[in-house]
């Protein structure tokens, strides 16, 4: 039967972007190789997954004798790479695909490319310095400005994010555009995220890249919390042109704390009407056996290509985005 070819068989990225992508990948590998990092590969499909309130992995039911078992497409290679560190790795990186449900927009594709690396012995300062070097080598936009989360909020939103009462967050949040009506008034992190994305982030990385560090302890994810008053998470993010490009942690090493955070994340997921994610994982066993001090960073490779090529949408740098996959 004759059928007109569908136009959407074509790639959405042009050849300039795809060549830039390939070139950047080569330079990235060279950058890591020259600094003694070993390229590794870990499973995309795993029985373990990161337990995060706002990350939804795709699941696959794998037939087993006597039933099925749920496997997850990785949302990042974090768990497996830390298991490699516990197994003796010193400096490792990988370029891999990660998958996140529902994330589809100008800066998001549900399947995307992550560059992730770990170096044993690095604290947060060393981790930020390495990320800064990599950013300079790949984008050539100069050394990154360092800004604490607290300092950035004080500068751009006029409030202290760690100590401001909820009411102050509410009124600051409404200063620009209206937040969703469904934000729970006492859900502090939702309001902080709103102010960050609406009022702070647009200023970040405009004249040169910016690294934001020392996040609120409630947003530690897998970072360790530094015991200060108030405590802060040793987590950092890189922004270029207002785009969030990389996220790093001075990694949490204590398995007991991770168990507690997993339980808290699952409780928050339940309150959001989401299914729980498996709280147990081989990462916990790796942590029990001993994980070296390390800093780990994940960088969105597609966004790096976007910044190199001046693309405004991720589908300009991906041959076949989700709706053509």
């Amino acid at each position: 039967m004759f059928r007109l070819p569908r136009e959407d068989f074509r790639p959405t990225a042009d050849w300039t972007a795809l060549r830039e992508r390939a070139g950047l990948l080569r330079r990235l590998r060279l950058f890591f190789d020259q600094r003694g990092f070993l390229e590794v590969e870990t499973p995309l499909l795993s029985a373990d997954t990161v337990v995060d309130r706002h990350l939804d992995p795709f699941s696959i039911e794998v037939p087993t004798p006597g039933g099925t078992r749920t496997y997850w497409l990785q949302t990042s290679p974090e768990l497996a790479m830390k298991r490699l560190l516990a197994g003796g790795a010193e400096a490792i990186y990988q370029v891999t695909r990660a998958f996140r449900q529902e994330e589809l927009g100008p800066l998001h594709n549900p399947e995307f490319t992550l560059v992730e690396w770990y170096r044993a012995g690095d604290d947060m300062a060393a981790g930020m310095a390495f990320l800064d070097q990599l950013c300079q080598a790949m984008l050539g936009r100069g050394a990154a400005e360092r800004l604490s989360y607290r300092g950035a909020f004080e500068r751009y939103a006029g409030l202290d994010p760690l100590t401001a009462p909820l009411e102050a967050l509410h009124s600051a949040a409404r200063r620009t555009s209206a937040p969703p009506a469904s934000f729970r008034p006492d859900d502090r992190d939702l309001w902080l995220d709103w102010i960050l994305t609406e009022q702070v982030q647009p200023h970040l990385g405009r004249t040169r890249p910016a690294i934001l560090y020392d996040y609120p302890a409630s947003q530690a994810a897998l970072a360790r919390v530094r015991d200060e008053s108030p405590p802060v998470a040793e987590r950092f993010e890189l922004f270029v042109e207002g785009i969030e490009l990389a996220n790093g942690y001075h990694e949490l090493l204590d398995p007991e704390l991770l168990r507690r955070r997993n339980a808290a994340n699952n409780a928050a997921r339940a309150a959001d009407g989401k299914h729980p994610l498996p709280a147990d994982s081989r990462l916990l066993d790796a942590m029990e056996s001993g994980l070296p001090q390390t800093t780990g960073v994940a960088l969105g490779f597609d966004r790096l290509v976007m910044l190199r090529t001046g693309a405004e949408r991720i589908d300009q740098v991906v041959a076949f985005p989700f709706d053509r996959a």
């Binding site: 706002h54 990350l55 100008p106 209206a178 937040p179």
Partner: peptide
């Protein structure tokens, strides 16, 4: 679709009133 790093996914939408043709912006989580 917008999503801060580890945060809540948001949908920033624009609407046109079907009778008055006025345009409004609303964000949903």
């Amino acid at each position: 679709f917008v999503k801060p790093g580890k945060g809540q996914a948001l949908y920033k939408c624009r609407f046109r009133h079907l009778i008055r043709n006025t345009v409004i912006d609303r964000t949903f989580k």
